[in-house]
Each structure stands twice: as structure tokens, then as C-alpha cells.
């Protein structure tokens, strides 16, 4: 639950003032709300928080949560309660690429600890920290349902399975080259939901 970050990704104050969904995102939100019966729009909270996280810097600031509450016409505390319950919502800023290494039984038995150690050494940060360029955050996570591809890591919506140290090199280099947002927030909601 604690997403500690080494400073670099502090959300820009000028951006903070502009917490309003894009027209496209707002359209998606409205569409999501129609999936539920009349008056049950609170059901949209989880998907809308994902969109908010994607839209507003990869994490949920208090201002973002306030905004989501106003969009869904619910109390801010209802948003905060939910946002703090689920592990995919970041309550603090994270790196552009959130490398989440599974550490539960199957992945552990196939060497996930070595993957984590290697990543720490390679990126020069510890689990829970973000590289000084704001590019990578290393996280350890609990079972992601990819035990057959153990050891694995997730970045954004991509599963990287059957990891070896060489594979980790390639993955990190590819992300570095792409250089774009690959946290949970880059889930490209607009095309799909």
C-alpha cells in the first residue's frame, strides 16, 4: 500500500489546478455509467478511478479524488475509502514504468527473488523506489495469475513471463527506448471502455 517515491515525480502544481477530464475521457465515463441501473452510478467508481489515474499523472492525488467524487456525485470519503483499498491505485506518484515483479509461491520457486535483486542492481534503486529520472519504479506484488509463466513481471497492462536476467535487460531497454508512460495508468481506456 505504501508507494514510496524518491522525490522525482512530484506532480506539477500547474497541472494540479487543471484536474478536469478531457472530453474523450468524460464521454467514456458517461458511457460507463450507463452500464448500471438508474441511481447505481457509484458502481462506476473503480473504472473511473482507473481513468482518473491514467489522465492525471499516474496517481490519485486528493484533488483528483475530489474531482472524481464530484463527477460521480458521491462523497469524497467514499472515493478515498475505495482508492485506498485496492492495490492498483497509487496514492503517491510513481515512475513512468512501474515494474511489478510477482513474488508469490510459483514465481518465488522459479527465481523471482533473483529477478528483483537483478533489477535493483541494474536500476540502482530498491523495491518501492523510483529512479532519479522518474523512469522506473520497482515494486513487488502478490500473485498476478501468471504462475505458468513464472517468474513474471507486469508493466502497464503487459505481462512479461518466463523471465531470465537477459530478458529483463531487453525489457528494461525497450521501455527506456519507448520512454513513455507504462504505469498501470497507460491502460488505454479510451479505445475500449
Amino acid at each position: 500500500m505504501s508507494n514510496q517515491v524518491s522525490g522525482a515525480q512530484a506532480f506539477d502544481k500547474t497541472q494540479r489546478a487543471k484536474i478536469v477530464f478531457s472530453d474523450e475521457a468524460l464521454k467514456t465515463v458517461q458511457k460507463i455509467i450507463t452500464r448500471y441501473p438508474e441511481g447505481k452510478h457509484k458502481s462506476a467508481l473503480l473504472p473511473v478511478l482507473h481513468i482518473a489515474q491514467a489522465e492525471f499523472g499516474g496517481w490519485l492525488s486528493p484533488e483528483t479524488m475530489d474531482y472524481v467524487a464530484s463527477v460521480l456525485k458521491i462523497k469524497p470519503i467514499e472515493v478515498f475509502e475505495v482508492a485506498s483499498f485496492y492495490s492498483m491505485y497509487n496514492l503517491k506518484p510513481v515512475g513512468k514504468c512501474n515494474l511489478e515483479v510477482c513474488r508469490t509461491s510459483s514465481c518465488w520457486s522459479r527465481g523471482s527473488e533473483d529477478i528483483v535483486k537483478y533489477l535493483e542492481k541494474k536500476l540502482g534503486v530498491k523495491v518501492g523506489e523510483t529512479t532519479s529520472d522518474g523512469m522506473f519504479t520497482i515494486k513487488t506484488v502478490e500473485c498476478l495469475g501468471s504462475c505458468g509463466g513464472a517468474p513474471m513481471l507486469q508493466c502497464g497492462s503487459s505481462f512479461h513471463e518466463n523471465l531470465t536476467l537477459e530478458k529483463v535487460d531487453t525489457i528494461v531497454e525497450n521501455y527506456r527506448m519507448e520512454g513513455k508512460q507504462k504505469s498501470y495508468t497507460d491502460l488505454d481506456y479510451k479505445n475500449t471502455l
Binding site: V82, Y86, S87
Partner: peptide
């Protein structure tokens, strides 16, 4: 879509989550 909680596999927790809680 959920947001990261094993407990939501329990059917009543799942329903709570589906209700946005």
C-alpha cells in the same frame, strides 16, 4: 474491472466491489 484485491474473489466482496465499494 477490479483494481487489485484478492478478496474480491469472494462472491459478496465481489458484489460490493461491483457496487463501487
Amino acid at each position: 474491472i477490479g483494481a487489485g484485491a484478492y478478496i474480491c474473489g469472494e462472491e459478496t466482496a465481489l458484489l460490493e466491489s461491483l457496487e463501487g465499494k
